[in-house]
Simulated scan of single mutants.
Amino acid sequence: MVRNGFSESSIGKSISSFSRAMKGNQDNTSGSSTAARVGAKALSFINDVKSIGFINTLDKIGLSHLKGSSSKELRTGLLEYFNESGNGFYDSIAQQSMSELMRELLQSAENEQDFDEILSSIKNEEFLREFIIKFIQNCFFANFAEKLLSLFEGLEKYDVAQQSVKTYIRNSIESEYPMEDVSNVDWTGPEGNKIIQEKCNKAYEILSIWSETLV
């Protein structure tokens, strides 16, 4: 990547190689299934908010103690709830990705009504795509951050490289990712997990296709 001047072409080649390796690696099944578990839990929560409201959803999932809390306490409590999914390698990546996404979505919420309105307005298919993008971005750097750091003289150059890779992953997935209506999926059952695994694997497939004509 650095030898080639860190061009968009070299980024594409590197990400393509990474994605092909993930597709061919037996551990990727674990990665996709972990992403599915974390994503399905969040989407189930979002659907409940849309159906019965934020306060009633807190009661339903055992977070009644958060009612009446400050916005900061609510965000912290929800992030802890979404992160209760295991402590393996991919568990940590999926939890990190969900935390990043939820923080972005809920950062402007100041009270319970704000949480209700923000969560109720989420489009499931867009939420799922964003989660998968973040998951794959974080997977790439979890695997190659140490190697990339060793290739650059300072953190500033690494930060530039990191942003370039993230942008390439995002743009590639957004341009080809099939947006489908998943608003009526039962995220508490096997159907939801299967859909997210398929979407995640489709994203790896998109990224694994590289040619000079794409850059």
Results as ranks from 00 to 15, higher is better:
E84H: 09
Q107D: 13
G77K: 11
M98V: 13
E8D: 13
S211E: 02
V2E: 07
T188C: 01
K199S: 10
E130D: 15
I46S: 01
V49W: 09
N4M: 07
Y81C: 08
E84L: 07
S121V: 00
A203K: 08
R103A: 08
E130S: 15
S14T: 10
S172H: 01
G5Y: 12
A142I: 06
S175V: 03
I122A: 02
V2H: 03
N184M: 13
L128P: 00
T188S: 11
T34K: 15
L101P: 00
S208H: 07
P178W: 09
Q95H: 01
F140A: 01
I133F: 00
Y177D: 03
N25A: 12
L79T: 11
K202D: 07
V160A: 05
G53A: 06
L214D: 04
Q197W: 01
S16G: 07
F115W: 09
Y81D: 02
E80C: 03
L66C: 12
Q163T: 09
L105C: 00
S7C: 08
L74M: 15
Q162F: 00
N47E: 09
K166C: 03
Q113S: 14
E104F: 05
I122Q: 14
K134V: 01
Q26R: 11
Y168C: 01
I132R: 02
S69D: 04
I11E: 13
S7M: 08
S121D: 14
T213F: 12
V2I: 11
E156Q: 06
I136R: 15
I196D: 04
I136V: 12
A40R: 12
E205K: 11
S17V: 15
C200A: 02
K157T: 11
Y177S: 10
S120F: 00
F131S: 02
N28P: 00
R103Q: 14
F82G: 08
I55W: 08
T213M: 12
N138M: 08
G31F: 11
S14N: 10
N124M: 05
I118D: 02
F144T: 13
K41Q: 15
I133E: 01
E212H: 02
N138W: 05
F18V: 08
K147M: 07
N47G: 11
I61P: 05
C200Q: 03
A145Y: 07
K166L: 04
Q137K: 15
E180P: 00
K194Q: 13
N4T: 08
I133N: 02
S175G: 06
D186C: 03
A40H: 09
G12A: 05
S97L: 13
S70P: 14
D59K: 14
Q107F: 06
A161T: 14
K202M: 10
T29H: 09
D91W: 06
C200N: 14
W187R: 07
W210V: 04
S16M: 03
E198Y: 06
V182Q: 05
M102S: 10
L106I: 04
E110G: 15
V49I: 14
F131E: 03
R129V: 02
G192R: 08
G88E: 07
N138P: 02
K13L: 15
